[in-house]
Amino acid sequence: MPATSTAGLMDGTALARRLVERSAAKAATITERTGAAPCLATVLVGEDPASVTYVRMKRNRCAKAGITSRHVELPAATTTAELVGTLTELSRDPGVHGILLQHPVGAHIDERAAFEAIAPEKDVDGVTMHSFAAMGFGLPGFVSCTPGGILRLLDAYDVPLAGKHAVVVGRSPILGKPVGMLLLGRDATVTYCHSRTADLSGHVRQADILVAAVGRPRFLAGADIKPGAVVIDAGYNPGNVGDVDFDSARERASLITPVPGGVGPMTIAVLLAQTVDAAAEQLGLGLPPVN
């Protein structure tokens, strides 16, 4: 990875568009063979404006990809038991092929218990312990959507992973932790860091591949980027800024994801692809996965 004066941009928007097109083609095949479209159930607890917007966007993308969406709105006062009951019913419904619980849910709800009520074969968002273990062991299953999108971006830009030092800054169960496992499964050497890591700058300087997923605006300085590194900024903060100081990082990196337009579009595209794959698997059609 040679140093460059200005990093190339990794266009997640264009890559996501192609992935959605392939998902739509597979969805059309499923509909033609079975008479029913793949179905994604979205569950929203409360009326958080950001969550409402995200769910609406995902449902709109579903429609464009030939995926039916079934939306379940629950009041903010919904209990853990009630939410678990709803997700269990959806898991048992043969007309539903994928389930998305929009998170975060209210602080009074046991989010982990809710996630675990989703049947593994319908966990198209990759949030259950089953999916996490499958990612860790390299077994078949659904990946967390953002990490899955990051790996697709790296592959699309022919970024070599084997033997490279990947530094992941962030440890969330649906982003930081699983993306590190996916990179490890591709023979990268992975270092996990977070906001409390001692000498964080020192670790960042060693990264051939840097994944920023800490959720703090411009938390990582461009001066700490190893010349020629590939920078994946999975952060999205108010003001359309990521977790990396983009302007300074671009002067040192070889490739970098913009915010917005980098990782974000890939997250939804992977969700749609995994929903279509789940439908084909549950219906026993024997179709290859969307790649």
Rank of each mutant, 00 (worst) to 15 (best):
V105R: 05
G106D: 10
A107Y: 00
H108F: 05
H108W: 08
H108P: 04
H108E: 13
I109G: 03
I109Q: 04
I109F: 05
D110I: 03
D110Q: 08
D110A: 09
D110N: 14
E111M: 12
E111D: 09
E111R: 13
R112T: 13
A113F: 08
A113D: 03
A113C: 06
A113G: 06
A113H: 05
A114R: 05
A114T: 05
F115T: 01
E116V: 08
E116P: 06
E116K: 09
A117R: 01
A117F: 03
A117Y: 03
I118M: 06
I118P: 12
I118L: 04
I118A: 08
A119H: 14
P120Q: 10
P120I: 07
P120F: 07
P120L: 09
P120T: 09
P120R: 12
E121Y: 10
E121Q: 15
K122E: 08
K122R: 14
K122D: 08
D123W: 12
D123K: 12
D123N: 11
V124T: 15
D125C: 05
D125P: 07
D125Y: 04
D125W: 01
D125Q: 07
G126A: 09
V127Y: 05
V127T: 10
V127A: 06
V127L: 15
T128N: 12
T128Q: 11
T128V: 11
M129G: 01
M129N: 12
H130Y: 14
H130W: 13
H130Q: 04
H130D: 14
S131C: 07
S131P: 03
S131I: 04
A133T: 13
A133G: 12
A133E: 10
A134L: 01
M135A: 15
G136N: 11
G136I: 01
F137V: 04
F137N: 05
F137L: 15
F137D: 01
F137S: 14
F137A: 14
G138H: 11
G138E: 12
G138Y: 11
L139W: 14
L139S: 10
L139G: 00
L139M: 14
P140E: 11
P140S: 10
P140M: 10
P140V: 11
G141R: 07
G141K: 12
G141D: 09
G141C: 06
G141F: 09
F142Q: 12
F142Y: 15
V143L: 15
V143G: 00
V143Y: 13
S144F: 09
S144E: 04
S144G: 12
S144N: 08
S144A: 15
S144Q: 02
S144K: 05
C145D: 06
C145K: 08
C145I: 09
T146H: 02
T146R: 04
T146C: 01
G149M: 02
G149Q: 02
G149N: 05
I150W: 01
L151I: 15
L151Q: 05
R152H: 13
L153E: 04
L153G: 06
L153T: 08
L153W: 07
L154I: 02
L154N: 05
D155M: 02
D155R: 15
A156V: 03
Y157P: 02
Y157D: 02
Y157T: 00
D158P: 00
D158M: 00
V159C: 05
V159S: 02
P160C: 01
P160W: 02
P160L: 02
L161E: 03
L161Y: 05
L161W: 03
